[in-house]
Design a protein around this nucleic acid. Sequence first.
DNA 1: CCACCTCCGTAACAACTGTTACGGTAACAA
DNA 2: TTGTTACCGTAACAGTTGTTACGGAGGTGG
Lengths: 195, 195
Amino acid sequence: MSRPSHGGATDERLTRAVHDVLARQGLERLTIRAVATAAGCTTGLVMHRFPNRRALLLHARRTMHENARARVEAIEAAAPDPRTALRDVLRNGLSLDEPTTDASVVWVGFLAASVTDPELTAEHRAHNASWRQRITRLVASAAPDWPAERVRTVAYALVAMVEGAAALATADPDTFTPAEQTGLLDATLAAHGLA
Amino acid sequence: MSRPSHGGATDERLTRAVHDVLARQGLERLTIRAVATAAGCTTGLVMHRFPNRRALLLHARRTMHENARARVEAIEAAAPDPRTALRDVLRNGLSLDEPTTDASVVWVGFLAASVTDPELTAEHRAHNASWRQRITRLVASAAPDWPAERVRTVAYALVAMVEGAAALATADPDTFTPAEQTGLLDATLAAHGLA
DNA sequence: CCACCTCCGTAACAACTGTTACGGTAACAA
DNA sequence: TTGTTACCGTAACAGTTGTTACGGAGGTGG
């Protein structure tokens, strides 16, 4: 039987293990044994914590979303003005260093896993909706006199651009270097009049 | 033993089978037996045609790239002017109908599979380089008086935006509808002065 | 000291994986 | 007919997968 309400520290270890395996070995090798090895335990602990593999992945994804949300909120709070907030928050979605690149690889892995798993798809949708809402709000703050429709369109275009750049950077980091990605973001912001 | 030089029709059937399984069942269920079933044959034929699973995936990806290239070239040739060519070619990269949505799901699947397979990564890079080169050339034609650096930056930003929108649409087609995606593309083109 | 209970490692299960070996079938040539 | 050869289905192989069942270690309360 599974006891999902117990040791939060162990759950965190397992979540990080899922993250590590997905980032470094990919979805095809994301097995329960690989996760257990990465967490420094056996499959017994994993299956005692979660009823099955899908539940493990779903929990891991949820936790990653919460962590990402907290990180982004801190970035937004630390920004001196709305435009800086928008740029810094969007920059956090790119693949600029090892943690953010890993996050992008994990993102692609979960997206690929969502094809078969409706719960993972629902989780993706919920997180992305919150993300789009945040960017929309930041764009509105950065351009207070825009009509709502323009705000939304520009926000979604920025979201798509960042997501695409981050994904492309995971497979071709020599082309989409951190400087290149940042340049693309700044060029897009400038083109929309948000520089 | 494998005879890769023989029946091209069979290879095409297998490539389409890989495409179908990847689009509808995802990377996790992309097994040789699933491919054989989708192709209407047995694993014997698959393994006779290709030395192993990786070679099958690599060949399938290569063939898909060639087909995509031919399709895009026809679109470009049919466009009346450079700006229309740019827009139509980019539109082909979005998830607007069933074939293009399937293509995006397959794209994400292969990207996730590239984490473990350097040959798939190299194939992705080569295809994406050619794709970026095409968009760069089209941007240069659409804005002949721009300096090369600006052409390149805008082209890469457009590539990233289209890739991101297509990927997001595969997981949330109700939010990123065809009209929404087209709107994002047009808004981005307009923002860059390419409308 | 002991019963109890939580936690988790061990070992096994059936199903599935990629891959190999073998056999049969159909076409074609002599 | 007979021999040859390309083609491909059948069946099996060893390894891996998710999952289950069991047992023991270690604390806790009486």
